[in-house]
């Protein structure tokens, strides 16, 4: 069985600005892989390519064995995405948002309501099914976003700095929730610039100025002091 996500020699530019240069990485199935980089490193651009918001013209992106360029529908059906910015409609209830998202994956309403109850239980929001999104706290809102991303049962979750703007407690909850999901078999690519969200056993890719500077486990790359190592790597590259 191949990796949940494979990115092979992908580059992307906006006019004359090279946002990504020859990026390759792999997310093994059922793993928690952190994509670490400072703001502007190219994390969101990479996510936009994986989700086909931008077209990848060089290299190859494969989701659960499906080439994104050749089989975009099959690849996107296996992706769950939690964007950096809010993607839920604040005027609608959690249930309405989730059933809408399910419909975008062709899941009928009745089945979607059952799945909505399931995924909300998974993220600890069972009692908020009929609450308006605008009434949720920041942490609850992020967990609802994760529930939205899970409703079509994806094989890999992409989370683009999902803890931005959250307080310490909510941040810890969202990280723990994602780790629980990987324990259940969902793969996760977690983009972040916060080092204490990464554990030694996690997969780690350090992205800086559109280039991969390191790829391996956090323990191997960090060698006991990930902060120091990260600063050394990005300092040299800057």
């Amino acid at each position: 069985m191949g990796a949940a996500l494979e990115i092979d020699h992908v580059s992307h530019s906006f006019g004359g600005f090279q946002a990504l240069s020859d990026v390759s990485l792999s997310v093994p199935r059922g793993s928690f892989t952190a994509l670490l980089g400072v703001n502007g490193a190219g994390k969101t651009t990479l996510f936009s390519l994986i989700t086909r918001l931008y077209n990848n013209t060089s290299g190859r992106i494969s989701v659960a064995g499906h080439d994104l360029r050749r089989q975009p529908g099959a690849a996107l059906a296996r992706l769950g995405v939690v964007f950096q910015s809010r993607a839920l409609d604040a005027d609608l209830t959690v249930a309405q948002n989730l059933t809408y998202h399910a419909a975008l994956h062709g899941i009928p309403r009745r089945q979607a309501l059952i799945r909505a109850a399931e995924v909300l239980a998974q993220v600890g929001l069972s009692d908020r099914l009929h609450a308006r999104v605008s009434a949720l706290s920041g942490g609850q809102s992020r967990r609802a976003e994760i529930a939205r991303a899970l409703i079509h049962r994806p094989e890999i979750l992409l989370l683009d700095e999902p803890t931005v703007g959250l307080d310490v407690k909510s941040r810890a909850e969202v990280v723990a929730l994602t780790r629980d999901l990987t324990a259940q078999g969902v793969s996760a690519l977690w983009a972040t610039h916060i080092l204490d969200e990464i554990r030694p056993e996690d997969g780690l890719v350090i992205l800086h100025q559109g280039r991969v500077l390191a790829d391996g486990t956090a323990a191997r790359i960090g060698g006991g002091d990930l902060t120091r190592r990260f600063l050394d790597l990005t300092g040299d590259a800057a």
Binding site: L53, A75, L76, A77, V81, A87, L88, D89, H101, H105
Partner: peptide, 14 residues
């Protein structure tokens, strides 16, 4: 601007 559009565009439908 808010990001809700991405939800629509990452759907597997064309």
């Amino acid at each position: 601007e808010t990001g809700a559009m991405r939800t629509l565009l990452v759907s597997p439908f064309p």
